[in-house]
């Protein structure tokens, strides 16, 4: 049950959250939402809500409650996870007039997201695909971290060992993420934070892609200077133990 909850948190706040970036990075996705004006709220019993808004060709995902045009209610994390796996249809409790958006545009966006998050060796050969895949994979992984840190029993243990402060994670010529620890709870935000205490820098999109997709060994990359860590390193050491749990929840 606890596992279903963590998985639902990750699916909602790390995987689906990516729609925001997908619509910015992928021209086809941008086209799909052109002219749409819909706010989709995911209400899953037992976890934080999320509102994903599509307006003027842009998408924003906000964790927490807020006004919406469609409310999708799930009586349990498991039911939400089944929807993500395509084994259950969402039930709107508000906004039946927007059901067409759910069936058409939203489904197409979900397919695009899946396309970018499930790479093949052939697809990764395309530089632009690899770039988008890396950005979305990085966001998925690093936004999944707080969910594991805050709800998974082993994640909570490792999070409790992270000193208070921020960790900046940066891909040169790519995205940057900041993870803030306070009292054993973690929060991820896009962009770097001033006065971070620890730093993880991937020297290129290629390195980040290789490490996140499992084709490069991160420890060898440290030795070769392709992945550099600095600052109060125990924060990163414990963060990486949580990061290592992410694939288990995404399988």
């Amino acid at each position: 049950m606890a596992e279903e909850k963590v998985k639902a948190c990750i699916n909602l706040h790390a995987v689906l959250r990516n729609l925001e970036d997908l619509c910015e990075l992928d021209p086809m996705s941008r086209k799909i939402i052109q002219g749409k004006n819909v706010a989709l709220k995911f209400s899953v019993v037992g976890i934080s809500k999320s509102v994903i808004t599509f307006t003027e060709g842009k998408c924003t995902a906000v964790k927490g409650d807020g006004p919406c045009s469609i409310n999708l209610y799930f009586s349990s994390p498991r039911n939400f996870n089944l929807m993500i796996e395509g084994k259950k249809n969402p039930i709107p409790t508000k906004g039946f007039q927007h059901i067409g958006f759910l069936k058409n545009e939203f489904t197409k966006l979900a397919d695009r997201l899946s396309y970018y998050l499930k790479p093949t060796a052939e697809l990764l050969g395309d530089k632009e695909y690899a770039r988008i895949n890396t950005i979305l994979t990085a966001y998925t992984a690093f936004f999944a971290i707080p969910e594991i840190a805050n709800w998974d029993p082993l994640g909570q243990l490792n999070a409790s060992r992270i000193a208070d402060g921020a960790i900046n994670v940066e891909v040169i010529d790519g995205p940057a993420i900041s993870i803030t620890a306070k009292g054993g709870r973690l929060e991820t935000s896009k962009g770097k934070t001033a006065n971070a205490r620890a730093f993880m820098v991937f020297d290129s999109i290629d390195t980040a892609s290789g490490i996140l997709n499992g084709t490069l060994d991160s420890y060898s990359c440290i030795g070769e200077g392709r992945l550099s860590i600095s600052g109060f390193v125990p924060m990163i050491d414990n963060l990486n133990k949580i990061l290592a749990q992410v694939p288990g929840y995404l399988m």
Binding site: D217, Y219, S220, I222, G223, E224, G225, S228, I229, S230, V233
Partner: peptide, 22 residues
Amino acid sequence: SKVIPSGIYGHLGPSQGCFIPV
């Protein structure tokens, strides 16, 4: 690195040995 996990594993290696910058 081609034949040994981490290239040099453990505390003598660049990762656990905190070679910053390597």
